[in-house]
Design a protein around this nucleic acid. Structure first.
Lengths: 233, 233
DNA sequence: TCAAAAGTGTTAGTCTTACACCCATGG
DNA sequence: CCATGGGTGTAAGACTAACACTTTTGA
C-alpha cells in the first residue's frame, strides 16, 4: 500500500525484412530470470540517459553493435503489470524500431549474439519468449501494420535506394497479404507528396523493363490521406 | 553511468466538455516541487496496483472523488527526460481520460479541490503548469483530436443519451472548428456500424423538430473507415 | 520475337461535399 | 402559419478497384 521503488526498462522491438519475412532481433538471456529464453535487446534506464528515447537507442547500439543512425525509432507503450518480472516491479517502455532490409549478408548465426527470428513463428506460440515479450511483440507488429496504413513508415524498411516493387513487398510482407495491385500501388505512392522521390537511376533485374529507383522523401512519417487500404472493416 | 532507482508516476489527463469548451481537470500542488502550480491529478505507482491502468484509475478516483466507471481511459505516452522532475528520475506515464459532459452542475470552484480549466488558455501559455505538464497536455489534446477522426471515441464525451447535435458539438469543440455540415454528419455517423444506436426517445428543445436520442454502441473505440475528416493535409 | 516486369489509360462504382428540400414542433 | 432546427434526397466531383494495354529490357 506504499509507493514503490521501481526499475524502468526500455525494450526496443527491432523489426526488419529478411528472407521475404518480417523478422525481429532477439537475444538469448544469459542470466536469471528467464535464462535461456529469447528477449528483446533491452535493459534498464541509466542516470546518464537524457530521456527514454536515448536509453532505447543506447541499448540497441550496445546490445547489438548496429549503427542506429538509419534505424527508425518511436515509443510504443509502457507495460507495468505487477507480476511481469519476478525480480520486482519493472515497468518496461517498448519501442518500435525498424532496420532497413539489407540484401548482402551471410546468415551470421552466432550463439550469444543477437539473432533475427521470423515474427510469424514467434507469435504462433511455439517458441517461448521471456516475460511478457510475446504480448509486446504482438502489439508492436500490430502498431507497425497500422502505421503502414496511415504513414509513410514503409520506407523505413527500405534501403537507401529501392524500387516500387520493393516498397510493395514491404506492405505485403508486413501485412501478411499478397496481391496488392502493382499498378494502383504505384500511382497511389507517387500521388502522395512526401512519400518517395524518384532518382535518375534504374535497376535491372533478370527479366523485364528496368525499374526506377526511389529514395525516401526527407520528412519521415508523413500522414497518408487517404490511407493505404489494408482491408474493409 | 549506472542503472538507477526510478519513480514511476501515472498522470491522468482528464478531459471533458464544459461550457462549450474543452476543459481539463487539474489540481493545485500543495507541496514542493512546483508548489502552487497546476498539475494533473497523478501520483506514484503503488505496489498494490495490478498494472499501470489500475494505478491511473486509482489516482483519478482518490484525487478527484469521481466515479471512474463511466470514464474512458487509455495510455498515451511515457515521459522520462532526466530533468523533468527536480526530485530525481521520475518517469511519468500519461493517460488520456475522458469524462462525459454533465449538463447539471453549479460551478464548484473550491480551493484545494481539483478544478476544471479551459484547455485553450493553458496551451496558449499564460498559466504555468508544473513540470512538463504543458507538453503532456498538448500531446493528449492532439491524441484526442486524432482519435476523433479514426475512432468512435467522441461518444466518450457524451452523456448516456445524446442527440446528433450534441455529438457534432463534441467534434467542433475538440477540433476547434465550426461548421460541420449537420446533414452529412448525421448520415456519416449512422452509416458507421458500432458508433451509435437510436433509442425511441426524443428530446425537445426551444425550437424545432424534436431530436432522436442516441446512446453509444456497446463496443468502445471502433475504428472509423472512412475516417471523419478534419482537414486536408 | 517472346516472356516478364514496369508503368499508363480507362471505366464502373463508392464516398464526400454542397445544397435543395421536406418534417415536426412551439409560439 | 412562420421560424427553427431535425432529417432525407440528389447531383458533381474525388478516389478506389479492376483490368486492358503499352513500354522496355534479357534471352
Amino acid at each position: 500500500m506504499t509507493k514503490q521503488e521501481v526499475q524502468v526498462a526500455v525494450d526496443p522491438v527491432l523489426l526488419t525484412i529478411r528472407e521475404d519475412q518480417l523478422q525481429v532481433l532477439l537475444i538469448v538471456r544469459r542470466h536469471e530470470p528467464c535464462k535461456g529464453e529469447l528477449s528483446f535487446p533491452g535493459g534498464f534506464l541509466w542516470s546518464t540517459d537524457n530521456d527514454l528515447d536515448a536509453a532505447a537507442a543506447r541499448k540497441l547500439a550496445t546490445e547489438t553493435g548496429l549503427d542506429t543512425s538509419d534505424i527508425h525509432m518511436e515509443q510504443l507503450h509502457a507495460y507495468g503489470a505487477r507480476d511481469r518480472d519476478p525480480r520486482g516491479r519493472v515497468v518496461a517502455v517498448a519501442y518500435l524500431a525498424i532496420q532497413p532490409s539489407v540484401s548482402d549478408h551471410a546468415s551470421d548465426t552466432e550463439a550469444g549474439r543477437p539473432n533475427w527470428h521470423p515474427v510469424a513463428s514467434l507469435l504462433s506460440g511455439q517458441v517461448p519468449l521471456a516475460f511478457d515479450h510475446r504480448r509486446i511483440l504482438a502489439d508492436a507488429v500490430e502498431a507497425a501494420r497500422r502505421k503502414l496504413e496511415h504513414t509513410t513508415l514503409a520506407t523505413a524498411f527500405c534501403p537507401p535506394r529501392f524500387t516500387m516493387a520493393d516498397l510493395r513487398r514491404v506492405y505485403e510482407i508486413v501485412w501478411g497479404v499478397g496481391g496488392l495491385d502493382p499498378r494502383n500501388f504505384h500511382r497511389k505512392v507517387l500521388s502522395t507528396k512526401g512519400f518517395v522521390v524518384a532518382t535518375r537511376a534504374k535497376r535491372q533485374q533478370a527479366n523485364g523493363r528496368p525499374a526506377t529507383l526511389y529514395r525516401k522523401a526527407s520528412a519521415q512519417a508523413v500522414t497518408l490521406y487517404p490511407p493505404m487500404l489494408r482491408e474493409r472493416y
